[in-house]
């Protein structure tokens, strides 16, 4: 009885156990196994052999993979800054009082509610040449933007993917910035007004520094999200034309379907490294900034 009681009294220290056990079984354990698989020639048919770092050497000889790294990085370089810029500007607007604000906020967030796969299909309906909505809408104007085969050119297809991604998730970044803005104590604005600072000065020296935690969350999640982009590309371009918009995740998935399990897992490990480097550098940079404050 006393034993039961003493367990019961200490239970609160171990309430994270179920969560971490579940996570360990379905994430950490496969992760550890995955790093093992990346060192083999596993192909789902013959027994796998240990091949050391061969898969990683192969990666650097693989032109398609290198092209995919370029596509993925360009996509992220386009998406992450734009998402943060627009998310921040939207949040500044939403932080001011105006009628219908709640409705606008809901509308801006709405695209993020939709599966990126479906979103991809909708934009496909809009952007198809000849049959597409945009083409038909702009037809009376003859020529110009509507006549472009947006998804047919490799550069324009990448630009479309970035634009659609930014359009879809800007509400998400906006909400995080808005939450940050709303938690800035009004005394700080008051003090800055009394000191005679104008709007831009207040923005520069009060608002933005106070938003660092939100910036951190947004930048990190946007880097991770855009470097592992998948669904939206499947629906919109399927990696085409050619392989010009194929992302690394899509390549990994296709190699998996082609039973190149060892190699594709190695590419996945490389993708992880590609993600962790900017995130680590950025977090490091933010740490020194916060220290200065």
């Amino acid at each position: 009885m006393t034993l039961l009681r003493s367990i019961n009294n200490r239970l609160h220290n171990y309430m994270a156990v179920p969560a971490i056990v579940l996570f360990a079984v379905f994430f950490l354990y496969p992760l550890a196994r995955g790093i093992g698989v990346s060192l083999t020639d596993s192909n789902g048919m013959t027994a796998p052999h240990f091949v050391g770092l061969q898969n990683f050497f192969d990666f650097f000889q693989d032109d398609r993979a290198k092209q995919d790294v370029r596509n993925t990085v360009l996509f992220a370089l386009g998406s992450a800054p734009l998402l943060n810029l627009f998310g921040f500007l939207y949040a500044l607007l939403m932080d001011r009082p105006f009628r219908g604000k709640a409705a606008v906020r809901t509308l801006v967030y709405m695209p993020a509610v939709i599966s990126p796969l479906i979103m991809g299909y909708i934009w496909y309906f809009i952007l198809q040449p000849e049959r597409g909505f945009l083409f038909r809408m702009l037809k009376p104007l003859h020529g110009g933007l509507g006549d472009m085969d947006w998804l047919g050119g490799s550069n324009s297809a990448l630009i479309v993917l970035i634009a659609v991604n930014v359009w879809q998730y800007v509400g998400m970044t906006m909400i995080v910035y808005l939450a940050g803005l709303q938690s800035i104590p009004s005394e700080l604005y008051e003090a800055s007004r009394i000191d005679g600072a104008g709007y831009m000065k207040t923005l520069r020296y009060v608002t933005i520094p106070m938003l660092y935690p939100s910036v951190k969350i947004n930048v990190v999640t946007n880097i991770i999200g855009s470097l592992s982009v998948f669904d939206i590309i499947v629906a919109l371009t399927d990696g085409g034309p050619g392989y010009s918009t194929e992302s690394l995740s899509l390549y990994i998935m296709r190699q998996l379907y082609g039973s190149q399990t060892g190699y594709s897992t190695a590419v996945a490990v490389i993708l992880f490294v590609i993600i962790i480097i900017p995130v680590a550098v950025y977090l490091r940079f933010m740490k020194t900034r916060e220290f200065e404050m």
């Binding site: 994430f27 992760l31 196994r33 995955g34 990190v220 991770i224 592992s228 990994i252 992880f272 993600i275």
Partner: peptide, 12 residues
């Protein structure tokens, strides 16, 4: 773990 793309673990 939030930084690890889920695709790495697909095979295992």
């Amino acid at each position: 773990s939030m930084m690890i793309p889920a695709i790495i673990i697909t095979v295992p």
